[in-house]
Each structure stands twice: as C-alpha cells, then as structure tokens.
Write a protein that binds this DNA or RNA. Structure first.
Length: 188
DNA sequence: GCAAGGATATCG
DNA sequence: GATATCCTTGCA
C-alpha cells in the first residue's frame, strides 16, 4: 500500500490550493468519500477524503496490494488499456491483453492510475461513500489479527510545481515489505 | 528519453 | 474562447 497526503488549501500541491472548484468539490465535503480525477488526459486517480466538511484534505491511493479479485483486476486493467484509445488495432489490443495477463499480481495496482484502472473506477465515482457497506467500492475494517504495518515516509511524487516546503515534506507513505509500490522497478 | 491524451484553471 | 499545464504510464 502506498498513499500520499494532501492537506488543506495551503498545500500548494493539492487540488484544493485554488479553493473550491467544480472538479474538487467533494474535497470540501464529508470524509470517507471518493474523489476521482483525470490526470494527464488518460489516467484516473482515486483519493479518499479525510477531514470534516469545509476542511479539504485527501489521501491519494498510489498503490495497493491485491489480495482477492486478481482476475477481476486484470480485466479492469485490460479494459482501461484497450478502450478510451482512439485508434487501436486488433493486434494492439491483443498485445495489451497479453501484457496484462503476464503481470505479477503485485504490479496490477502499483501506481495511482493503475489503482483506478484495476478497480474499474472513473471520475463518475467521485462522491461515492467509501464507508457505506452497500457501496460497490468501499473501505473495510481489517481483521483483528492484522499485524501492524511498518510505514516509511518520503516526499510526494510529481508535484515539483508546488515549491518548498511542499515538494520535500515526507507525506508519501509506503508500507514496508510490500511489492506494490509506484515507480520504475529499478528504483526499488 | 518522450509521446499519448483530455480536462482544467487561468489568462486574454 | 484559447492554451499551458497536469498528484502518469509504457514503450522507444
């Protein structure tokens, strides 16, 4: 599991830095809801609102460790990789499907765009109550015997535009020992 | 190393 | 209305 924290209007790396807009409206709403946005024109990113209404803060879910539904996650990844493309021939579609079929489980959601793809989430999921047991996408309480996670903290990724101290504050949190982490494998 | 890809916030 | 930019990914 890998997440990044974006906290408040003053956080120059946060979508809330310009105040409330149509895109980030749910950031200013109640906690436990989903904020899904489109980045770089082709990838959706899942965030969880973390503070009470009026206090815009969220966690960007950058990577998760697949435990169940791995086949379903492959389908989600394949769908996202082969649709929403203007011109993709049959051979290219087959190549994408084959590439994803060969991915190890811990690489199915090892990046913010890949998390949303694996779960089949789009921007239309924004506002979903992730704490509602009836929600198709939700957060669940871990088993009581779940061991406590050891967490490493590093600077956040892809926010050089924010300036100091936001580019260096260690608000990217990574569960140590998990294979599902974003970024090139060579850097791990 | 870099192109793909479209919404968005900000400017004329 | 136009456009520079963006909390990325996968292939050259």
């Amino acid at each position: 599991m890998e997440v990044e924290a974006y906290i408040g209007r003053d956080d120059r790396a946060s979508h809330a830095r310009f105040g409330e807009t149509r895109r980030n409206r749910v950031m200013f709403g109640p906690p436990g809801h989903a904020y899904v946005y489109l980045v770089y024109g082709m990838y959706d990113c899942l965030n969880v609102i973390t503070e009470p209404a009026g206090s815009p803060a969220a966690l960007l879910i950058r990577a998760v460790e697949p435990l169940e539904g791995i086949d379903a996650m492959r389908i989600g990844r394949t769908l996202r990789a082969t649709t929403r493309r203007h011109s993709l021939g049959a051979a290219a579609i087959a190549a994408q499907a084959d590439r994803i079929a060969r991915l190890p489980a811990d690489r199915l959601a090892s990046g913010p765009g890949l998390v949303a793809a694996a779960f089949g989430l789009g921007t239309d999921r924004t506002g979903t109550d992730l704490c509602d047991p009836a929600s198709p996408v939700r957060l669940e309480t871990p088993p009581a015997n779940e061991p406590a996670a050891v967490v490493d903290a590093t600077p956040r990724i892809g926010i050089d535009y924010a300036g100091e101290p936001w580019t260096t504050c260690p608000w990217r949190l990574i569960e140590r020992g998990h294979g599902s982490v974003s970024g090139p494998r060579s850097s791990r």
